[in-house]
Design a protein around this nucleic acid. Structure first.
Lengths: 135, 135
DNA sequence: GCTATTGATTTCCTTTTGGAAACCAGTTTC
DNA sequence: GAAACTGGTTTCCAAAAGGAAATCAATAGC
Protein backbone atom coordinates (compact mmCIF):
# COMPACT_ATOMS: atom_id res chain seq x y z
CA UNK A 1 0.00 0.00 0.00
CA UNK A 2 1.80 3.02 -1.26
CA UNK A 3 0.32 6.40 -0.59
CA UNK A 4 1.40 9.59 -2.27
CA UNK A 5 0.26 12.81 -0.71
CA UNK A 6 2.56 15.30 -2.32
CA UNK A 7 1.33 16.34 -5.73
CA UNK A 8 4.59 18.10 -6.48
CA UNK A 9 6.55 14.96 -5.71
CA UNK A 10 4.15 12.88 -7.74
CA UNK A 11 4.58 15.21 -10.66
CA UNK A 12 8.33 14.85 -10.49
CA UNK A 13 8.10 11.10 -10.21
CA UNK A 14 5.87 11.03 -13.20
CA UNK A 15 8.34 13.16 -15.10
CA UNK A 16 11.15 10.80 -14.16
CA UNK A 17 9.19 7.81 -15.27
CA UNK A 18 8.43 9.47 -18.53
CA UNK A 19 12.03 8.80 -19.50
CA UNK A 20 11.31 5.15 -18.90
CA UNK A 21 7.93 5.17 -20.61
CA UNK A 22 9.82 7.00 -23.32
CA UNK A 23 9.26 7.28 -26.96
CA UNK A 24 12.69 6.87 -28.48
CA UNK A 25 13.20 8.11 -32.00
CA UNK A 26 13.83 4.66 -33.45
CA UNK A 27 10.44 3.64 -32.16
CA UNK A 28 8.47 5.72 -34.63
CA UNK A 29 10.27 3.98 -37.47
CA UNK A 30 9.17 0.59 -36.19
CA UNK A 31 5.66 1.88 -35.65
CA UNK A 32 5.61 3.24 -39.17
CA UNK A 33 6.52 -0.15 -40.61
CA UNK A 34 3.85 -1.86 -38.55
CA UNK A 35 1.33 0.76 -39.57
CA UNK A 36 2.20 0.21 -43.23
CA UNK A 37 1.50 -3.48 -42.95
CA UNK A 38 -1.69 -2.95 -40.98
CA UNK A 39 -3.06 -0.43 -43.45
CA UNK A 40 -2.32 -2.73 -46.33
CA UNK A 41 -4.26 -5.57 -44.78
CA UNK A 42 -6.97 -3.63 -42.98
CA UNK A 43 -10.52 -3.22 -44.14
CA UNK A 44 -13.20 -5.78 -44.60
CA UNK A 45 -11.94 -7.46 -47.74
CA UNK A 46 -8.22 -7.32 -48.42
CA UNK A 47 -7.22 -10.47 -46.62
CA UNK A 48 -10.03 -12.44 -48.19
CA UNK A 49 -8.98 -11.23 -51.62
CA UNK A 50 -5.33 -12.02 -51.00
CA UNK A 51 -6.31 -15.39 -49.57
CA UNK A 52 -8.29 -16.28 -52.67
CA UNK A 53 -5.47 -15.14 -54.89
CA UNK A 54 -2.96 -17.16 -52.86
CA UNK A 55 -4.97 -20.31 -53.43
CA UNK A 56 -5.76 -19.81 -57.11
CA UNK A 57 -3.38 -18.92 -59.88
CA UNK A 58 -5.35 -16.55 -62.07
CA UNK A 59 -8.74 -15.22 -61.14
CA UNK A 60 -11.09 -13.04 -63.14
CA UNK A 61 -12.97 -10.10 -61.72
CA UNK A 62 -16.37 -11.72 -61.78
CA UNK A 63 -15.04 -14.94 -60.29
CA UNK A 64 -13.46 -12.95 -57.49
CA UNK A 65 -16.82 -11.32 -56.85
CA UNK A 66 -18.35 -14.76 -56.51
CA UNK A 67 -15.50 -16.13 -54.39
CA UNK A 68 -15.31 -13.26 -51.94
CA UNK A 69 -18.64 -13.59 -50.26
CA UNK A 70 -20.70 -10.41 -50.10
CA UNK A 71 -18.30 -7.96 -51.70
CA UNK A 72 -19.67 -5.43 -54.19
CA UNK A 73 -18.12 -4.30 -57.45
CA UNK A 74 -17.08 -0.93 -56.09
CA UNK A 75 -15.16 -2.34 -53.16
CA UNK A 76 -13.54 -5.13 -55.14
CA UNK A 77 -12.39 -2.71 -57.80
CA UNK A 78 -11.00 -0.30 -55.22
CA UNK A 79 -9.20 -2.95 -53.19
CA UNK A 80 -7.66 -4.52 -56.29
CA UNK A 81 -6.31 -1.15 -57.37
CA UNK A 82 -4.69 -0.71 -54.00
CA UNK A 83 -3.15 -4.15 -54.06
CA UNK A 84 -1.83 -3.53 -57.55
CA UNK A 85 -0.25 -0.21 -56.54
CA UNK A 86 1.51 -2.05 -53.77
CA UNK A 87 2.79 -4.60 -56.28
CA UNK A 88 1.10 -7.46 -54.51
CA UNK A 89 -0.95 -8.47 -57.54
CA UNK A 90 -0.88 -8.03 -61.30
CA UNK A 91 -3.76 -7.07 -63.54
CA UNK A 92 -3.91 -8.42 -67.07
CA UNK A 93 -6.53 -7.52 -69.62
CA UNK A 94 -7.23 -10.47 -71.89
CA UNK A 95 -8.16 -10.13 -75.54
CA UNK A 96 -11.44 -12.00 -75.28
CA UNK A 97 -14.94 -10.91 -76.18
CA UNK A 98 -16.26 -9.64 -73.89
CA UNK A 99 -12.94 -8.67 -72.39
CA UNK A 100 -11.86 -10.46 -69.26
CA UNK A 101 -9.34 -9.33 -66.71
CA UNK A 102 -7.10 -11.69 -64.83
CA UNK A 103 -5.72 -10.92 -61.43
CA UNK A 104 -2.75 -12.83 -60.13
CA UNK A 105 -0.67 -12.63 -56.99
CA UNK A 106 2.96 -11.66 -57.49
CA UNK A 107 5.96 -13.45 -56.01
CA UNK A 108 6.26 -10.45 -53.76
CA UNK A 109 2.64 -10.77 -52.73
CA UNK A 110 3.37 -14.31 -51.63
CA UNK A 111 5.80 -12.98 -49.03
CA UNK A 112 2.75 -11.83 -47.10
CA UNK A 113 2.09 -15.48 -46.30
CA UNK A 114 4.33 -15.39 -43.23
CA UNK A 115 2.51 -12.38 -41.80
CA UNK A 116 -0.91 -13.84 -42.45
CA UNK A 117 0.15 -17.22 -41.10
CA UNK A 118 1.40 -15.64 -37.86
CA UNK A 119 -1.91 -13.82 -37.49
CA UNK A 120 -3.86 -16.97 -38.13
CA UNK A 121 -1.88 -19.03 -35.64
CA UNK A 122 -2.33 -16.43 -32.96
CA UNK A 123 -6.01 -16.04 -33.74
CA UNK A 124 -6.64 -19.76 -33.40
CA UNK A 125 -5.01 -19.87 -29.98
CA UNK A 126 -6.83 -16.75 -28.91
CA UNK A 127 -10.17 -18.26 -29.78
CA UNK A 128 -9.34 -21.39 -27.81
CA UNK A 129 -8.30 -19.31 -24.85
CA UNK A 130 -11.41 -17.17 -24.77
CA UNK A 131 -13.62 -20.25 -25.02
CA UNK A 132 -11.79 -21.86 -22.13
CA UNK A 133 -12.13 -18.84 -19.87
CA UNK A 134 -15.88 -18.75 -20.49
CA UNK A 135 -16.35 -22.42 -19.49
CA UNK B 1 -4.18 -14.58 -77.96
CA UNK B 2 -7.21 -16.51 -76.85
CA UNK B 3 -10.59 -15.42 -78.12
CA UNK B 4 -13.89 -16.61 -76.72
CA UNK B 5 -16.96 -15.92 -78.80
CA UNK B 6 -19.45 -18.24 -77.21
CA UNK B 7 -21.06 -16.69 -74.15
CA UNK B 8 -22.68 -20.00 -73.21
CA UNK B 9 -19.36 -21.76 -73.27
CA UNK B 10 -17.74 -18.99 -71.33
CA UNK B 11 -20.43 -19.27 -68.69
CA UNK B 12 -19.79 -22.97 -68.31
CA UNK B 13 -16.04 -22.47 -68.14
CA UNK B 14 -16.54 -19.90 -65.46
CA UNK B 15 -18.76 -22.31 -63.53
CA UNK B 16 -16.14 -25.03 -63.81
CA UNK B 17 -13.43 -22.73 -62.60
CA UNK B 18 -15.55 -21.77 -59.66
CA UNK B 19 -14.70 -25.16 -58.20
CA UNK B 20 -11.07 -24.18 -58.46
CA UNK B 21 -11.56 -20.68 -57.14
CA UNK B 22 -13.51 -22.48 -54.43
CA UNK B 23 -14.28 -21.49 -50.96
CA UNK B 24 -13.80 -24.66 -48.95
CA UNK B 25 -15.45 -24.88 -45.55
CA UNK B 26 -12.18 -25.06 -43.63
CA UNK B 27 -11.29 -21.72 -45.19
CA UNK B 28 -13.80 -19.70 -43.24
CA UNK B 29 -12.33 -21.01 -39.99
CA UNK B 30 -8.91 -19.74 -40.97
CA UNK B 31 -10.38 -16.45 -42.09
CA UNK B 32 -12.16 -16.14 -38.78
CA UNK B 33 -8.92 -16.55 -36.86
CA UNK B 34 -7.19 -13.97 -39.03
CA UNK B 35 -10.11 -11.61 -38.64
CA UNK B 36 -9.96 -11.99 -34.85
CA UNK B 37 -6.32 -10.99 -34.81
CA UNK B 38 -6.87 -8.12 -37.20
CA UNK B 39 -9.76 -6.71 -35.22
CA UNK B 40 -7.79 -6.91 -32.03
CA UNK B 41 -4.95 -4.90 -33.49
CA UNK B 42 -6.85 -2.61 -35.83
CA UNK B 43 -7.67 0.99 -35.20
CA UNK B 44 -5.41 3.93 -34.84
CA UNK B 45 -4.01 3.22 -31.38
CA UNK B 46 -3.95 -0.40 -30.23
CA UNK B 47 -0.52 -1.32 -31.50
CA UNK B 48 1.01 1.83 -30.12
CA UNK B 49 -0.51 1.09 -26.73
CA UNK B 50 0.63 -2.52 -26.77
CA UNK B 51 4.05 -1.41 -27.94
CA UNK B 52 4.42 0.99 -25.06
CA UNK B 53 3.24 -1.63 -22.63
CA UNK B 54 5.65 -4.17 -24.06
CA UNK B 55 8.56 -1.83 -23.42
CA UNK B 56 7.57 -0.64 -19.97
CA UNK B 57 6.54 -2.74 -17.01
CA UNK B 58 3.77 -0.76 -15.39
CA UNK B 59 2.30 2.37 -16.91
CA UNK B 60 -0.26 4.74 -15.49
CA UNK B 61 -3.15 6.16 -17.46
CA UNK B 62 -1.81 9.67 -17.70
CA UNK B 63 1.66 8.47 -18.61
CA UNK B 64 0.15 6.39 -21.38
CA UNK B 65 -1.65 9.49 -22.63
CA UNK B 66 1.68 11.27 -22.80
CA UNK B 67 3.50 8.32 -24.34
CA UNK B 68 0.96 7.58 -27.06
CA UNK B 69 1.23 10.69 -29.13
CA UNK B 70 -2.05 12.42 -29.90
CA UNK B 71 -4.47 10.02 -28.27
CA UNK B 72 -7.39 11.44 -26.28
CA UNK B 73 -8.78 10.21 -22.98
CA UNK B 74 -11.86 8.69 -24.55
CA UNK B 75 -9.97 6.59 -27.04
CA UNK B 76 -7.33 5.48 -24.56
CA UNK B 77 -9.93 4.43 -22.06
CA UNK B 78 -11.92 2.54 -24.67
CA UNK B 79 -8.93 0.75 -26.14
CA UNK B 80 -7.62 -0.26 -22.72
CA UNK B 81 -10.98 -1.78 -21.84
CA UNK B 82 -10.90 -3.82 -25.01
CA UNK B 83 -7.37 -5.02 -24.36
CA UNK B 84 -8.31 -5.98 -20.82
CA UNK B 85 -11.34 -7.94 -21.96
CA UNK B 86 -9.06 -9.85 -24.27
CA UNK B 87 -6.75 -10.59 -21.35
CA UNK B 88 -3.82 -8.87 -22.98
CA UNK B 89 -3.35 -6.37 -20.17
CA UNK B 90 -4.23 -6.05 -16.50
CA UNK B 91 -5.66 -3.00 -14.79
CA UNK B 92 -4.77 -2.28 -11.17
CA UNK B 93 -6.20 0.58 -9.14
CA UNK B 94 -3.62 1.83 -6.66
CA UNK B 95 -4.49 3.20 -3.26
CA UNK B 96 -2.84 6.57 -3.79
CA UNK B 97 -4.29 10.03 -3.51
CA UNK B 98 -5.38 10.92 -6.06
CA UNK B 99 -5.86 7.35 -7.17
CA UNK B 100 -3.63 6.05 -9.90
CA UNK B 101 -4.24 3.12 -12.18
CA UNK B 102 -1.52 0.88 -13.43
CA UNK B 103 -1.75 -1.00 -16.70
CA UNK B 104 0.52 -3.91 -17.36
CA UNK B 105 0.87 -6.35 -20.21
CA UNK B 106 0.11 -9.98 -19.35
CA UNK B 107 2.28 -12.96 -20.20
CA UNK B 108 -0.38 -13.79 -22.72
CA UNK B 109 -0.22 -10.30 -24.16
CA UNK B 110 3.47 -10.84 -24.77
CA UNK B 111 2.64 -13.66 -27.17
CA UNK B 112 1.52 -10.97 -29.60
CA UNK B 113 5.17 -10.08 -30.05
CA UNK B 114 5.64 -12.65 -32.80
CA UNK B 115 2.71 -11.28 -34.78
CA UNK B 116 3.79 -7.69 -34.40
CA UNK B 117 7.38 -8.58 -35.22
CA UNK B 118 6.33 -10.33 -38.42
CA UNK B 119 4.31 -7.27 -39.42
CA UNK B 120 7.19 -4.96 -38.66
CA UNK B 121 9.71 -7.03 -40.62
CA UNK B 122 7.42 -7.12 -43.63
CA UNK B 123 6.64 -3.42 -43.35
CA UNK B 124 10.32 -2.49 -43.34
CA UNK B 125 10.99 -4.50 -46.48
CA UNK B 126 7.89 -3.11 -48.14
CA UNK B 127 8.98 0.44 -47.49
CA UNK B 128 12.42 -0.29 -48.99
CA UNK B 129 10.80 -1.88 -52.02
CA UNK B 130 8.45 1.00 -52.73
CA UNK B 131 11.28 3.51 -52.39
CA UNK B 132 13.41 1.54 -54.84
CA UNK B 133 10.68 1.33 -57.46
CA UNK B 134 10.22 5.11 -57.31
CA UNK B 135 13.92 5.87 -57.88
C1' DG C 1 -12.51 29.07 -2.18
C1' DC C 2 -9.92 28.40 -6.44
C1' DT C 3 -7.06 25.52 -8.99
C1' DA C 4 -4.72 21.24 -10.09
C1' DT C 5 -4.18 16.41 -9.94
C1' DT C 6 -5.99 11.51 -10.77
C1' DG C 7 -8.93 8.45 -14.28
C1' DA C 8 -12.27 8.38 -16.46
C1' DT C 9 -17.44 9.26 -19.05
C1' DT C 10 -20.57 11.94 -21.91
C1' DT C 11 -21.91 14.91 -25.58
C1' DC C 12 -21.53 16.61 -29.97
C1' DC C 13 -19.38 16.81 -34.13
C1' DT C 14 -16.49 15.41 -38.35
C1' DT C 15 -14.25 12.02 -41.03
C1' DT C 16 -13.78 7.56 -42.82
C1' DT C 17 -15.62 3.36 -44.40
C1' DG C 18 -18.69 0.59 -46.74
C1' DG C 19 -22.83 -0.75 -49.39
C1' DA C 20 -26.88 -0.77 -52.97
C1' DA C 21 -28.29 0.70 -57.13
C1' DA C 22 -27.82 3.01 -61.37
C1' DC C 23 -25.18 3.64 -65.18
C1' DC C 24 -21.76 2.92 -69.10
C1' DA C 25 -19.30 0.79 -73.17
C1' DG C 26 -18.47 -2.97 -76.04
C1' DT C 27 -20.06 -7.33 -77.75
C1' DT C 28 -22.96 -11.54 -78.40
C1' DT C 29 -27.03 -14.30 -78.37
C1' DC C 30 -31.77 -14.67 -79.41
C1' DG D 1 -33.78 -4.50 -81.08
C1' DA D 2 -33.93 -6.53 -76.28
C1' DA D 3 -31.27 -8.85 -73.00
C1' DA D 4 -27.07 -10.52 -71.01
C1' DC D 5 -22.20 -10.76 -70.26
C1' DT D 6 -17.67 -8.48 -69.44
C1' DG D 7 -15.34 -4.91 -65.89
C1' DG D 8 -15.89 -1.18 -64.18
C1' DT D 9 -17.36 4.00 -62.28
C1' DT D 10 -20.56 7.16 -60.12
C1' DT D 11 -23.95 8.65 -56.94
C1' DC D 12 -26.17 8.68 -52.84
C1' DC D 13 -26.80 7.08 -48.33
C1' DA D 14 -25.97 4.65 -43.60
C1' DA D 15 -22.92 3.12 -40.19
C1' DA D 16 -18.68 3.16 -37.78
C1' DA D 17 -14.65 5.37 -36.07
C1' DG D 18 -12.47 9.06 -34.00
C1' DG D 19 -11.68 13.65 -31.79
C1' DA D 20 -12.29 18.08 -28.78
C1' DA D 21 -14.33 19.84 -24.97
C1' DA D 22 -17.15 19.63 -20.94
C1' DT D 23 -18.10 17.23 -16.94
C1' DC D 24 -17.43 14.42 -12.67
C1' DA D 25 -15.64 12.77 -8.01
C1' DA D 26 -12.17 12.80 -4.74
C1' DT D 27 -8.33 15.09 -2.81
C1' DA D 28 -4.38 18.31 -2.19
C1' DG D 29 -1.94 22.79 -2.42
C1' DC D 30 -2.00 27.65 -2.10
Amino acid sequence: MQVVYDLTLQKEMSAMEKKVVHKPEGCSKHLLAIRDTMELLSGKWKIQIIGTLLLTEKVRFMDLMRAVDGIGAKMLSKELQELEINQLITRTVCDTKPITVEYEITEYGKTLKSVIFEMEAWGVKHRERLFQSVN
